[in-house]
Design a protein around this nucleic acid. Structure first.
Ligand SMILES: [Zn+2]
Ligand SMILES: [Zn+2]
Ligand SMILES: [Zn+2]
Ligand SMILES: [Zn+2]
Lengths: 167, 167
DNA sequence: TATATATTGAGCCCCAGTATCAAATCAATC
DNA sequence: GATTGATTTGATACTGGGGCTCAATATATA
């Protein structure tokens, strides 16, 4: 919530505030995640990742932007939006949908992932979901969570597009 | 694709083009779906549903609007957007996300539904997904589909919010 | 330290999605 | 079939999430 302000100065990327208790290896996770994509672990990206992890809930990009500005007035709007996508891409965060066409992000260690949806022609194939019943019930008792509804969708290539791909 | 234009006239709701081969009981499904929600099965809603079913793939709202205009220049932009949400609400369609923050719809007979996400406080709890491996493999062989990635998220109430709810 | 590459952020723009509200339709009742 | 009240439609205007541009700046590598 209230990290000592670093002596902000100039523009562009600044050195990290330097002095976090390093509760979780966010720095390491970021370095590895970015390296795997040929990206750089910048101070801004770290700030965003830590904010996400601290939130422990889904946060919208605008929400996060406003929150980060408080301690870091220099951070750019575009940077926050771009970073969120980068984190998702690196498997360090995930995107969710809230009712009313609102989208939010949450930190997540491992990527998670109903329908078959072709990413090339967008063809959809409905799938059988019988297998989920048991899983749902177990989750409810294990986490004390009340499941109202869930989404399960598979993304990939339909048979036809897979062939064209290899041609 | 090319249905005979009904003699368009005036504004507002018109009577249906009247003359479809009625391949699938789209009319009936719509009636039932809307009735269950206290809504009316209008001509526009039927056109949208049939277009969705005919597409057999996910379609964005703007895409669908442009497509529908061709045969029905009178249909309103807002109507298409609203109708899509209505169909999802009635369980006759579902919403999907495409890469790049693009959202699309597809007709679907039964609602489908990884993470636990509280719809009140948005708290998230990561869940174990080991059970999905088998399901994924079976789907791939059954449909000739190549799964690249999938999303599975549960929505509902966390323990705390469930208590407050009942208070 | 010098050089190449990647990232940042301020400003501007686009468009998906929504609010508004009068005209039009439907359902129900007389 | 005319009347009336609840819904829906659609033309229009608006909003804001999110992307683009590009000069300034930081990181990586030699
Ligand atoms: Zn559902
Ligand atoms: Zn395909
Ligand atoms: Zn994935
Ligand atoms: Zn909760």
């Amino acid at each position: 919530m209230s990290r000592p302000h670093s002596s902000g100065s100039g523009r562009g990327t600044r050195s990290l505030p330097a002095g976090q208790p390093a509760a979780q290896p966010a720095v390491r996770d970021l370095s590895e995640g970015m390296a795997a994509r040929g990206r750089r672990p910048t101070a801004q990206r770290l700030v965003v990742l830590e904010a996400l992890r601290g939130a422990k809930r889904t946060v919208t990009a605008p929400e996060l932007f406003d929150q980060l500005r408080e301690d870091n007035p220099l951070i750019g709007r575009a940077t926050v939006f771009r970073t969120l996508d980068s984190l998702v891409d690196a498997g360090l965060a995930q995107r969710f949908e809230r009712p009313g066409h609102v989208y939010a992000y949450a930190a997540c260690s491992s990527a998670h992932h109903h329908h078959l949806v072709c990413t090339v022609c967008n063809t959809t194939i409905e799938i059988d979901e019988a297998a989920l019943g048991m899983l749902t019930r177990e989750l409810e008792s294990r986490h004390g969570f009340t499941v109202h509804h869930a989404t399960l969708d598979f993304y990939g290539l339909c048979e036809r597009c897979a062939q064209q791909e290899s041609a």
